[in-house]
Amino acid sequence: MTLTVQRMREDVADVLGEDPVDIPVDENLVDYGLDSVRLMTLVERWRREHGADVSFADLAERTAIEAWAPLLGART
């Protein structure tokens, strides 16, 4: 299964307990409650479900979906 930006929004919303429409793709997700534990949950989920070859540090550098999409090879 290919990872998409929409799937990323849904996964982020899931770990934050929010509605996906409330998750922006271009803003710092720390402002929405993303912390290191939740970020690690996302990294592990995307590795397991989508074969993503990305590290926690890669995603922690810039915490916006639009910055993650190229690293994860996500389709828009």
Rank of each mutant, 00 (worst) to 15 (best):
V15R: 09
T2V: 14
T4R: 06
L16A: 04
E44G: 10
G73P: 09
E10W: 01
V25E: 12
D14H: 05
Y32E: 14
R47W: 04
G17M: 05
E44M: 13
R75E: 15
I23C: 03
R47S: 12
D53L: 11
V12H: 06
A74L: 01
M40P: 03
W68R: 12
D53C: 04
H50V: 07
D58V: 09
V25W: 01
V43Q: 06
N28K: 02
M1D: 10
H50N: 14
M40I: 09
G33T: 05
L71R: 06
D31C: 07
D58S: 07
R7D: 15
I23R: 08
D31H: 05
V54K: 03
L42G: 04
L16C: 05
Y32K: 15
L3N: 07
A74C: 09
L34W: 02
A52D: 11
I65E: 08
Y32H: 13
I23P: 02
L72D: 12
E18V: 12
L29Q: 05
A74W: 02
D11Y: 05
R48L: 06
D14Q: 12
T2L: 11
V5K: 06
D35R: 07
G73M: 08
I65N: 00
D53Q: 15
W46S: 11
V43K: 02
R38S: 05
L39S: 04
T63K: 11
Y32C: 14
N28T: 15
S55M: 06
E18F: 01
L29A: 04
V54Y: 00
P70I: 13
V37C: 08
G33F: 04
V37G: 11
E18I: 12
V5Q: 09
V37A: 10
E66M: 10
V25H: 06
L34K: 08
I65S: 04
T41P: 05
R9Q: 15
M1N: 13
L29E: 07
D19E: 13
A69C: 01
R7H: 03
W46M: 11
L29M: 07
V5D: 12
E27P: 09
L72T: 10
